[in-house]
């Protein structure tokens, strides 16, 4: 099965899953003729039909490959990004950002650790200054904040 059909299958599954949830909704509604279920049921049904239609008769001319080597870098970057998202809160903005920049520049082809380190430090401080000094937005400091106390 090609990527095109796999996509259609995912759409069909999404439609069915959504429809399932929509029907399972517990509803107490008063004075609301349409209710909270009607619109989701319509959407779920529409999505399922589109999925079936694309499964039976895929669009011509598309032959993308999703899970080749080409996607590996993108998936790794996304993984690091997700960790960074939580890192801002866990270990504070400064450490999380420096580590993220260091790793991300490396993945994208920066060869020198020194340049990477300088870049990461400089940028973290720059962005921090922009947010705290100009926009007055506080960012979590994590353990660095504790040490400074």
């Amino acid at each position: 099965m090609g990527a095109e059909r796999s996509g259609a299958l995912i759409i069909l599954l999404l439609g069915i899953g959504y429809l399932w949830e929509a029907f399972a909704m517990q509803v107490v509604s008063i004075g609301d003729p349409l209710g909270p279920k009607a619109f989701p049921i319509f959407l779920g049904a529409l999505m399922s039909l589109l999925g079936i239609s694309l499964l039976i008769k895929p669009e011509k001319g598309a032959n993308a490959r999703l899970f080749g080597k080409t996607s590996l870098g993108a998936i790794i970057l996304a993984g690091i990004l997700a960790v960074y998202g939580f890192g801002i809160e866990w270990i504070g903005y400064p450490i999380a950002t420096v580590i993220f920049l260091l790793v991300a520049t490396r993945i994208l082809g920066e060869r020198s650790w020194i340049i990477g380190m300088l870049l990461s430090m400089g940028l973290s401080i720059g962005v921090f200054a922009l947010f705290t000094l100009v926009l007055d937005i506080r960012l979590p400091l994590g353990p660095i904040g504790e040490i400074l106390k």
Partner: peptide
């Protein structure tokens, strides 16, 4: 290799704030 990580950091800190 420098630009993309910067954009990601700015986007993420912006959204987070």
């Amino acid at each position: 290799r420098w630009l993309f990580p910067i954009v990601l950091v700015l986007s993420f800190v912006g959204v987070y704030s």
